[in-house]
Amino acid sequence: MPTCEVYVVGSYGVAFWIVGEVPAPGETVLGSGFAFGHGGKGSNQAIGAARLGAKCKLLAGVGADKFGSEALELWRVEGVDCLAVRQTTETPTMAGIIILDAAGENRIITDPGANAQLTVTDVETFAASWVDPGILLTQLEIPVETAARALAIGKARGLTTILNPAPARTLPKEIFTDVDILTPNQSEARILLGLEADDPQADAEIALKLRALGVAHVVMTLGADGALIAGPDGITKIASYLVDVVDTTGAGDAFNGALAAGLASGLTLTEAARRGTAAGALAVTKKLVVPALPDERQISKLMKTGTLAYEDQGRFPSHRPSGYRR
């Protein structure tokens, strides 16, 4: 099957990282390792797919500011078609603040900025460039109605529609029937069902309940345990890789970008999910999201040898990855 295009409707933002403990109300704590860089789930996933050879087009919102201009240059360098990106003077580019603890787990707060201005009309204009077969990938750092419209148009056009439901929230039930592949982590899957994030029901049971909402396939990421796929033929488990965790922030985006790229290249869902798991494992071994998104050579090496493809790591580590949720 020839490679088809990946259309991403999502977010861009600039991210600021600091390592330290989360302060209590009124408390100031000392941190370390401050860094900043490109972020936003839509942008990250589009870049992740492009690095793996996908022809990728992105719709996102940025401000008419320094960060928005830098985003446009980033996409040009990475080979992501950004002609549909909306640059607005009304609001600034999205910003996120990420606190990493000593174990590499993250806590994030964001101001959606220009992403909140991304409208249904923007999606309808962007959709004029969509060609079947194709992959439509969206997330929830943009208005829900905008993501829902993208899924509905994609489904009607015959594209394979992927919803990465992050950040987690409850959604209107009618969205799910337009989703071919739902890619939550364990906590997101439970929140979609109106449950507590740590509900003790088995992951497979949760995935089957999500399918009952009308989703064709659920691909749930399981952190150290890899992923599971719930589809018409039952449950399939995908193993993960053991890596040293440095920063978990971009693991889910690496997974989704690789999943979309794999499907666009003609892989089966199971084959694409295996590549996604490898991409997620590699992503947690480096700080910052965009620098950690792997390329084809790195994923191929990890999948073939079971050892890290980043030469500067120096050894095959023994720690559990926490890419999505433990």
Rank of each mutant, 00 (worst) to 15 (best):
Y12V: 12
Y12T: 14
A15E: 04
F16N: 14
F16L: 07
E27D: 09
L30K: 09
F36S: 05
I47S: 10
G61F: 14
D65N: 08
K66M: 01
T88W: 07
T89F: 00
P92Y: 03
G96S: 11
I98T: 10
D101K: 04
I108Y: 08
T110K: 08
D111A: 15
G113D: 09
G113T: 06
N115I: 09
E124K: 12
T125H: 08
T138Y: 03
I142Y: 04
T160Q: 15
T161P: 00
A168R: 11
E174M: 06
F176K: 07
T177Q: 13
A189I: 04
D198A: 12
Q201E: 09
K209L: 02
R211P: 01
A212D: 11
V218F: 04
A224S: 09
T236Q: 15
T236C: 14
K237E: 08
A239L: 01
D244G: 15
L267E: 12
T268D: 09
T268R: 07
G276L: 01
T277K: 05
A278Q: 00
A281K: 00
K286V: 04
K287Q: 11
L288F: 07
Q298I: 02
I299D: 01
E311K: 10
Q313C: 14
G314T: 03
S322Y: 11
R326N: 06
